[in-house]
């Protein structure tokens, strides 16, 4: 099938899943209830719809971030999650919660700004550590990512320990990654990052393709590799920071979705960028529906669902040896 046809299918499926998702939950909706404008309509309008929108935005961002990092590092295991960006962002947000930075400046909330800073810090650390070790090999990259991830996780534990019960619970709940507390404001706080970042990744589609060839060939083809890498790095950190500040670290979306998309549309980023955004968005919406209904009436954090799917996927990727071919 042509990539264009796959993209149209993706768009149709994503639209259907996203449109249906608000109506699926522990209790069904009755049309009569919706028309009467009672509690059901309110739940739909104020809880379900923003939640589905947030899930779509977060899923698209996480998938695009993973896609960009995999090209940037020429490594299929590179994602914001495995590279410690998410834990850095979580640490920033936890610190903001603890310090009571709830204000909104220029449309950016305190936790969002702090998690953005945390994302940048951890990305910089991983980048710096890997660079010092001389090259972006899987081993060095994963080691640096795991080290930075652990470092920030312990810092989060430290902050949690010093927090009161209320804040500690909010942090704990948040580190699991969930979408149960989003409202329209939280969507607005991550949308600017998500939109500008997605546009930038789309504009960089040729560069993302060329980076896959290796730095020497990319430079030879006319790509300003150092500049492009820095911009992409910054962009991805910014997008992930925005999402993590709202949803917490939702893992594995950034690894699974781009790989599944490559199976269907190939490695060309002209198709892969829109495919990852659509698939990622719809995927997280579907995972969130599952999180709502699997243990109904209780509700799972969506991060638990993605981790349950992603763990085995990660292992499969590792054992299938696909990563070895990507090293040069």
């Amino acid at each position: 099938m042509k990539p264009r046809a796959v993209l149209i299918l993706f768009a149709a499926a994503a639209a259907m899943i996203t449109a249906a998702a608000p109506f699926i939950g522990p209790d069904g909706f009755s049309l009569a209830g919706l028309h009467s404008g009672g509690v059901e309509a309110q739940v739909l309008r104020e809880l379900r719809i923003p939640r589905v929108i947030a899930a779509f935005v977060a899923g698209a961002v996480l998938a695009l971030s993973g896609m960009a990092f995999q090209s940037l590092f020429r490594n299929p295991l590179a994602t914001p999650f495995t590279l410690g960006v998410s834990s850095g962002a979580s640490f920033g947000a936890a610190l903001a919660l603890q310090l009571g930075l709830h204000g909104v400046w220029f449309g950016i909330s305190g936790p969002a700004a702090a998690s953005f800073a945390g994302a940048l810090l951890s990305t910089g650390l991983v980048y710096g550590l890997t660079y010092l070790r001389g090259g972006f090999s899987t081993a060095t990259l994963l080691l640096a990512g795991v080290a930075v991830s652990f470092f920030f996780s312990s810092l989060i534990l430290f902050v949690q320990y010093t927090a009161d019960v209320y804040n500690a619970f909010r942090m704990l709940r948040w580190v699991m990654g969930g979408l149960s507390v989003v409202d329209y404001d939280s969507i607005w706080s991550m949308l600017p990052f998500a939109l500008s970042g997605s546009v930038l990744l789309w504009l960089a589609r040729h560069e993302l393709n060329l980076l896959l060839l290796g730095d020497d060939l990319a430079i030879s083809r006319g790509v300003e590799v150092a500049k492009v890498k820095l911009v992409l790095f910054f962009t991805v950190s910014l997008m992930v920071g925005g999402v993590v500040s709202v949803c917490g670290p939702i893992g594995f979306v950034g690894m699974m979705v781009p790989h599944m998309c490559r199976f269907m549309v190939g490695h060309d980023h002209r198709a892969l960028v829109p495919a990852s955004a659509l698939f990622g968005g719809a995927f997280l919406v579907a995972c969130d529906v599952a999180a709502r209904v699997v243990l109904s009436p209780a509700e799972l954090p969506v991060g638990v669902i993605t981790a349950l799917l992603g763990g085995p996927f990660f292992l499969w990727l590792l054992l299938s040896g696909k990563d070895q071919r990507n090293l040069a």
Binding site: N209, L212, L213, G214, D216, L217, I219, S220, R221, G222, V223, E224, R262, G266, H267, D268, R325, N326, L327, A328
Partner: peptide, 21 residues
């Protein structure tokens, strides 16, 4: 960089690097 690329091009050794295209 682009102007340079229109003038000269580097052709690397036929190594085993993975090229997914």
């Amino acid at each position: 960089q682009r102007d340079l690329a229109r003038v000269l091009s580097y052709v690397p050794q036929a190594d085993a690097r993975y090229l997914p295209f």
